[in-house]
Nucleic acid binder design. Structure first.
Lengths: 225, 225
DNA sequence: ACAAAAGTGTTGCTACTACACCCATGA
DNA sequence: TCATGGGTGTAGTAGCAACACTTTTGT
């Protein structure tokens, strides 16, 4: 018993903003355990040559048909009892992406794939609820010192869109005048000449993120509100 | 080959300050592979009921006789080829501690244990050099928003000691007047009536860290210099 | 009285907060 | 002309950086 074998898995918390709300990508389990419950996309590290990062990307693609996104390792969960079948250690990953243009497709182990608002989650399999709250915390911090917000936005976006990302993730409203001033002052936003026409009101100017300018900033820039 | 079994290990980067320099605790390997090279203390997760955190603590104790210290998970390294014996995934941990009062003792797998200045490391086994640089980066960030510095100090310390921790970890000198002002203003330092007599010069006042006061600070206090 | 490290104050500047109204557009 | 969200300016304040000398102690 002292050397029961341990299984290594990866699970990904894929987050996106939809209509001002933070959402997470879940799959509905087809098999036991936790059959019919929703869970994070993920699975065993079985292709022996792949890195953990590659495994996370592969599993995400296989189970949801989502690929080519930003992924980073979050935390590794290995408590006994997190999987009733036996000891498993899972490296949890965080993905930040935009829903636009995706075509969700459930993989063979799943009965469905869907985006769920993080504030209205169903009952989840395993310890996946814990993993999601860890991810939310991490994203909050990432917004403050990294260009993470831009992974959640399309190439071109309005200042209002950007502000909505911050408000959704931080869970609080921010003053729009100060927000604009502060962000424009960082220099990481490139003003385009295009505008976005959303309805019968004044069109908003579009911007893009400049990685180049971001890298000129000090080690830990502070985008705090 | 697609299901070759994967081994799960833990490795700990234990850091401490000694005479104003950051040091890491290493063990000298007794067996192949990498026999006679220095490595991080760590090993297999074999006691099946333990958490990763417990395994890290146990291995650290077994291999170096260091126990009861602050540990946190750092990152999980799982690239193929990091161990010539086969696929291993290691959850790396960070320990912050004070050398004072420790009695290092090499475990059975080791031929020696010692503190090494992080700026003067020997050749290391596995990918342990990468793990150590990751840990150094993490500590840098931790100093900026957490009371991590106090884990590296004894219960009672002088402002100079505290400043030395920041200087050692950040790798740069800071202005002592501003440093004192800023830290004293946070309120997390409790002034004692005792002083520390170090030589034939003015004795320095001693302080302790107040966790209580720390917790009254905003979410992400900034101890940046 | 000297060597060594402890300890202290001010000024200018930058950057944040708080706050409310006008603008451009399509219907 | 109205409804809707886009877009803007200022004044007060707080906190930071830059900077050098005096104090206390043991020898």
């Amino acid at each position: 018993m002292a050397s029961e074998t341990i299984k290594v898995t990866v699970d990904t918390v894929a987050l996106a903003i939809e209509q001002g709300a933070l959402e997470v990508l879940l799959v509905k389990r087809k098999y036991e355990p936790y059959k019919s419950l929703w869970a994070l996309p993920g699975g065993s590290l079985d292709e022996i040559d792949e890195t953990l990062d590659q495994a996370a990307a592969r599993e995400l693609l296989e189970e949801t048909n989502v690929g080519g996104v930003y992924l980073e390792q979050l935390y590794t969960f290995g408590d006994k009892g997190r999987d009733p079948r036996g000891r498993t250690v899972t490296a949890a990953y965080l993905a930040l992406l935009r829903q636009e243009g995706l075509e969700l497709k459930a993989g063979s182990k799943a009965r469905g794939v869907a985006w769920w608002k993080v504030n209205e989650l169903p009952e989840l399999a395993f310890d996946h609820a814990d993993i999601i709250s860890y991810a939310r915390q991490r994203v909050k911090y990432k917004l403050e010192y990294s260009p993470a917000a831009f992974m959640l936005l399309p190439e071109k976006f309005t200042l209002r869109d950007l502000q909505s990302v911050y408000e959704a993730v931080l869970g609080k409203a921010v003053d729009n005048r100060n927000f604009r001033k502060k962000f424009l002052n960082t220099g990481v936003l490139q003003e385009l000449s295009e505008t976005s026409q959303e309805g019968s009101f004044r069109p908003a100017r579009l911007y893009t993120f400049s990685l180049e300018e971001f890298e000129k900033l000090p080690d830990r820039p502070v985008f705090m509100f």
